[in-house]
């Protein structure tokens, strides 16, 4: 498992290198692989274990919803910023995520940070708690609505990426 995720990391770094140069040539791919290997084996970080299964359709749906949410989030912040005399009431809320994996915690935190209203300010990895700052509590519907949104986001992510065992461990009915 560790070796597979390491190889995935090297391939990803090679892809980044090829994208930077813009030309898909054998030289670039090879150089990318070599550099990726050097970076991965020279600068060791904790390995990310991915035990899930990727559902292509659900991943597409997730990305599409995410894109729409990013646009809505920017429009909302721009509206709040440009409305004269309006001061939003902020809040910091703690949400207990259901899965216990670092990868899903990170991905949920990334998704939640870019959708309307919330921004992750603290993540406690051992307990799976995310603390978010909500820009405008009234516009987002209150504390419980924000919590429900975050948990729904996590659920969409888990359905798209997690294996049935992980979904069951998170308390969801595996689909």
């Amino acid at each position: 498992m560790r070796r597979r995720s390491q190889w995935l990391g090297i391939v990803w770094l090679a892809a980044v290198w090829v994208l930077l140069w813009g030309d898909l040539t054998w030289g670039n791919v090879l150089a990318g692989l070599v550099l990726g290997a050097v970076v991965t084996w020279g600068l060791r970080m904790v390995a990310v274990d991915f035990h899930g299964r990727v559902h292509p359709w659900r991943v597409l749906v997730l990305l599409a919803r995410f894109a729409v949410d990013v646009v809505r989030a920017s429009i909302e912040v721009a509206t709040i910023a440009l409305t004269p005399g309006y001061t939003p009431r902020g809040a910091v809320i703690g949400v207990q995520l259901r899965s216990h994996s670092d990868l899903y915690l990170t991905l949920t935190a990334e998704l939640v940070s870019l959708v309307p209203g919330s921004l992750v300010v603290e993540a406690h990895r051992l307990t799976g708690m995310l603390y978010l700052h909500v820009l405008d509590l009234d516009r987002s519907g209150g504390v419980e609505a924000v919590r429900a949104d975050v948990l729904a986001q996590e659920e969409r992510l888990l359905r798209a990426l997690a294996s049935p065992q992980e979904q069951a461990a998170a308390g969801m009915v595996p689909a």
Partner: peptide
Amino acid sequence: LLARMHAATKP
């Protein structure tokens, strides 16, 4: 500070 971070991230 936290509200300003919203402005720096999303738009």
